[in-house]
């Protein structure tokens, strides 16, 4: 399946919805390991205590790719980057709903040769449906020479 076909068939289609709990111990360890010193992220007693803004990058849905997506297509791929849009504070202890979609597929060349880029997007909302966080994950696959 070529890039244009992948784009036409899969981009923009929501293929997974999963609930995720923002566990207090996880959020605190995430902040500590990253060197957070702002008490809003490092001190559970702070009145505005919340998980660090990039915390939701740690989750994946039940499915990483759409059901009919040729998963072998991205076996051996590597992580090219993450973009996080923080819509609202991430409430510690809450359960958020994350939906997944493929946001883009494209090709370019780089240090690793010809590569295909896949942008995997997860949008997290609270139980009221309000947006909390959007995480774009850029997966890169080296094309065969």
């Amino acid at each position: 399946m070529d890039v244009e076909e992948l784009k036409t068939r899969f981009v923009g289609e929501e293929f997974d919805s999963t609930e995720f709990e923002v566990k207090p111990a996880d959020a605190l360890a995430f902040a500590r390991c990253c060197g957070e010193t702002d008490p809003r992220y490092s001190d559970p007693r702070h009145p505005e205590y919340q998980a660090p803004p990039t915390f939701m990058t740690r989750f994946h849905g039940r499915r990483t790719m759409p059901e009919e997506f040729p998963e072998e297509y991205f076996q051996g791929s590597f992580d090219g980057g993450k973009t996080v849009i923080a819509h609202a504070p991430i409430p510690v202890g809450a359960t958020l709903v994350g939906t997944s979609q493929i946001a883009d597929v494209y090709r370019k060349t780089g240090r690793s040769g010809s590569m295909t880029f896949l942008v995997h997007r997860m949008e997290y909302r609270n139980q009221e449906g309000e947006p909390i966080s959007t995480v774009d994950w850029k997966l890169i696959r080296k094309d065969e020479a």
Partner: peptide, 22 residues
């Protein structure tokens, strides 16, 4: 990415990251 976010908070305590792209 979390380290870079922490760097911002160390420099600007109380600030709120709206978007971070790494």
């Amino acid at each position: 990415q979390g380290i870079l976010a922490a760097a911002i908070h160390r420099f600007l305590p109380g600030s709120t990251i709206r978007k971070i792209d790494t």
